[in-house]
Design a protein around this nucleic acid. Structure first.
Lengths: 110, 110
DNA sequence: TAGACAGGTAAGCGTTTGCTTACGTATATT
DNA sequence: AATATACGTAAGCAAACGCTTACCTGTCTA
């Protein structure tokens, strides 16, 4: 996972681990505490903490202390670089999938 | 870079290294030989070979022997998982960027 | 105020990554 | 046939990853 000169691990590295992608997926639905997140994984809680830190340092999530809990919150805009990079390959997909994606995007706004 | 049970390194791992993403970007324009690709990087040629192998094993490229050269060819469909995953976050982008992306996609088809 | 609970941090350890240099193999050129 | 070219493979090594257990701090609650 490449660390950029400003010591911020890049987003592509952060999402390269399936557990971290699943964590982001969980945070799409709602903000969640560490224990809530850890409940979805078999690894130890410190391991979850460490993954969350990678996401935090990549700017993909923020944390907010609420009492003794720590609530993690998704920052989807930080996925921009991935979205932009993959968009360069847009022309390679067929129209059907493209329309499907657009409809999904449209529907979720309604 | 997580290796899936079938020993095929997953696509997210393969694209987590900036050099490998640049290699894919180069192959969008045209199929290229190893030396042509290596010319764009400062690392040694074997290092380039090793990166290409990661891409090959992830199914993101194919190779074709042409005389003593080896031509690498992009397989953009294999980026599907990335595209699909990022599409889950589609609703978070604003309309302007969405339309821009759609126009780019449309224009490249004309 | 004495636990209990949430969760970060440290240390340690085996594995993987990413690079290098050295070398091997197949094809092309003279 | 001898040599040059293209490129893969092997070995070695430092650094990064990903995980564990042990421990620490801060906040709630009985």
């Amino acid at each position: 996972m490449v660390v950029t000169p400003d010591r911020r691990p890049d987003v592509f590295g952060a999402i390269s681990h399936p557990a971290r992608r699943r964590m982001l997926d969980l945070l799409v639905e709602a903000d969640r505490s560490v224990n809530t997140i850890a409940g979805h994984f078999q690894m130890s809680r410190p391991a979850v903490s460490q993954h969350l830190r990678v996401l935090l340092e990549a700017g993909l999530v923020t944390e907010q202390r609420r009492g003794r809990e720590r609530c993690y919150h998704l920052v989807p805009e930080r996925l921009g670089p991935v979205r932009e990079w993959i968009a360069h390959y847009e022309r390679f997909w067929d129209d059907r999938l493209l329309r499907l994606q657009q409809q999904l995007a449209k529907r979720s706004k309604e």
